[in-house]
Structure formats: structure tokens, C-alpha cells
């Protein structure tokens, strides 16, 4: 094939076919369109950093744009250490290098210090089948708590278009109406949770990977050693097949998720958000999911937070003992109360 010229500048040779638009564009124009699609806030922002490609590109782009356009953002890296030997310990080494490369303060919060359990310990008790449930619930809450400790008003995460389309598919198949509405929002904010946004909502995985490749960014790419979320895995493979047949499928699915309307009668049956009686975190029941899961672990009945039968069994054994280990009470975000130890650079 003869070389093509870039569809945007009509000068340079095209080096990438953009999946979203089908445009054939050059390296410089790719950097330009990719970078300028991102948002422009103005405060203390924590970047959820795992050391993987998405959060590494996010940290790099946030830093670059902050400097280029004088956003005046104060940026932090926030990492959650799930306690997975041979996986997260290695990826955190990447985050520590990013801390140096990007000169950003880094806070690492571990499941061990917050919940008293590492994922290694959880897997040794519950096995590999349901451990992703624990990890997902614990991570979400840990990010909010880490952000609260940092005194930031905004968390950004590296979720890309492929991730969001996957989540839309999963929520439709599970019939999870409440999450379906939330999962396509670029930005979410509860009453006493920290604002969260996904600047890469419309950025394809292909673009993230090409950006990291052309910019030679240092990222970590290994699959989690505890059986990757099987359900998400199916959605992901299906989506990649769809994308191969028609690249716009990913954006189309996100669009469907956004356009989904829920009937008022159904909305009325949704549980109202409240705060957890034990730890103060947002919850749709008396106890939040993390407290339920933790109680199950502590009382040796890990199924309690996963199945109805497990919960009934736990309840039949009587109320939680007085000396049960609990999660520290959640301090809703209030900027200026940050007095925490960062990782030494």
C-alpha cells in the first residue's frame, strides 16, 4: 500500500487509523486530538494509579496538560495495595518509578492496614472463585478513603471506552439497573463521596496502548494471578470480536448505555442511599458491602457477604461480637484536613 497522508494536517504520513472515526492520522495529530479530548478542572486531584497502561497514560497526560495549559491542578498518585504477592508488589514498583518520573506525591493505602486482610489471606480462606467480589468492593472504598486522607476533591481513574462498554454489557446482562445508570457517567458525585471521573471514557484501548508505545511510557502488564474476573473476561472477548468487525461498536454500546431510560415505577423500587451504621461509608443497606464481607471473613463465614444463604447462616449465629474487627469510621471529604504520610520519593 502506498503511504497515506494524515487526514487532519494533510502534510505528514499517516501512522495510525483512529478506531473511533476511521481517520488515518499522523503521530503528531494523534497526540493533539488525543490530548485535547480530556477535561479541564482546577483543584487537588488524585490519580488512581495501578502501574498499568491506563493509569500510567492518565498520569502522564494529566501532568502534561496541567503544565501545558496551566490548569493549576495539584496532582497526586493514589495506589491501592491489595496485597497480592507477585502481582501488585511488582506493579507498585512501576508506580514508584512513575512518582519519580512525573514528580508527583504518592500515597499507597493497603487492604491490610484498612481491613486487616490482604488479598493473599482472603484467597487462602475463600478460594479463587469469589475473590474478585472482595477485591472490587474493597478497592472502591479504599480509593475513597485514600482520597479523603489526601484531602483531594477529585479522583480520576484510567477507565477507557472498552472498560465502560464492558461494564454496560455486564450490567445489562445482570439486570443491574442502579449501576447501569451510573456506569456511563464521566463524572459521579454522591453527597459525601469524593467526585470521581473517567477522563478516558471515550478513549479506545487501542489509543491508550499506541500513546504509551509512541511515548515510550513505563507501564506494567501482567494479568492478576487470582483468576481474572471470569464474567468480565467473557464480556471483554465478545467486545474485542465486535470491535474487529466494526470499530465503532464500542462507542455505540456506551451510547446505548447512556440512552437507557428506566421507568419511574422501577426507579421507585431502587434502594435509597444511606450511610453504613458501622463504618459511615455510603451504603444501600444498614451495613455496607465491605463491612458485610469483612464480618464474614472475621467470623470464618466468608460466604455471608456473597450469597443470601451465607447471610442467613451468619445471622442465625447471632449478632456480631463486640470485639469484631471493623473498618475505621469514614471521614467524609473536607479539604485541608490532610495530614498523612506520603511515600518517600
Amino acid at each position: 500500500m502506498p503511504p497515506r497522508t494524515c487526514a487532519l494536517c494533510s502534510t505528514n504520513r499517516a501512522m495510525l487509523k483512529r478506531p473511533k472515526t476511521g481517520q488515518q492520522i499522523c503521530r503528531e495529530c494523534f497526540f493533539y486530538v488525543f490530548e485535547t479530548e480530556l477535561f479541564k478542572p482546577g483543584d487537588r486531584v488524585a490519580i488512581g494509579a495501578s502501574g498499568g497502561k491506563d493509569s500510567t497514560v492518565l498520569a502522564y497526560v494529566m501532568k502534561t496538560l496541567n503544565e501545558r495549559y496551566n490548569y493549576g491542578l495539584e496532582l497526586f498518585l493514589l495506589s491501592i495495595d491489595e496485597g497480592i504477592t507477585g502481582y501488585r508488589d511488582d506493579s507498585l514498583e512501576t508506580v514508584k518509578r512513575n512518582q519519580q518520573q512525573y514528580s508527583m506525591p504518592l500515597k499507597i493505602l493497603s487492604y491490610d492496614e484498612l481491613y486487616g486482610w490482604t488479598m493473599d489471606a482472603i484467597v487462602s480462606q475463600v478460594g479463587r472463585k469469589n475473590n474478585c467480589t472482595f477485591c472490587g468492593v474493597f478497592r472502591r472504598q479504599a480509593l475513597d478513603r485514600g482520597a479523603s486522607m489526601l484531602g483531594v476533591d477529585h479522583i480520576v481513574t484510567g477507565h477507557n471506552a472498552d472498560d465502560i462498554a464492558e461494564t454496560v454489557l455486564m450490567n445489562i446482562m445482570r439486570g443491574d439497573i442502579a449501576r447501569l445508570g451510573r456506569c456511563t457517567s464521566i463524572c459521579t458525585q454522591g453527597e459525601d463521596t469524593i467526585k470521581r471521573s473517567k477522563p478516558f471514557k471515550y478513549a479506545y484501548e487501542k489509543e491508550i496502548v499506541m500513546y504509551a508505545y509512541f511515548k515510550k511510557l513505563d507501564y506494567f502488564s501482567t494479568e492478576c494471578i487470582y483468576s481474572p474476573d471470569a464474567y468480565r473476561g467473557h464480556a471483554r472477548v465478545f467486545l474485542k470480536d465486535l470491535e474487529a468487525a466494526r470499530p465503532s461498536a464500542i462507542i455505540d454500546i456506551i451510547h446505548s448505555g447512556e440512552a437507557f431510560e428506566i421507568r419511574e415505577e422501577v426507579k421507585a423500587t431502587q434502594k435509597v442511599q444511606q450511610t453504613c451504621k458501622r463504618c459511615g461509608y455510603m451504603s444501600s443497606n444498614d451495613l455496607c458491602k465491605a463491612c458485610t464481607l469483612l464480618e464474614g471473613l472475621e467470623r470464618g463465614m466468608a460466604q455471608a457477604g456473597i450469597t443470601d444463604r451465607g447471610r442467613k447462616k451468619l445471622e442465625s449465629e447471632g449478632p456480631a461480637p463486640e470485639n469484631l474487627r471493623t473498618i475505621p469510621f469514614y471521614q467524609p471529604p473536607s479539604a485541608g484536613n490532610a495530614a498523612i504520610l506520603l511515600e518517600a520519593p
Binding site: G51, G52, S221
Partner: peptide
């Protein structure tokens, strides 16, 4: 020739 997997998560 470079082959890059995009399938590995963070």
C-alpha cells in the same frame, strides 16, 4: 514488527 497485547489489565 511489533505485537502488543491490549488485553492485560491494571
Amino acid at each position: 514488527i511489533v505485537f502488543i497485547s491490549t488485553l492485560h489489565g491494571g
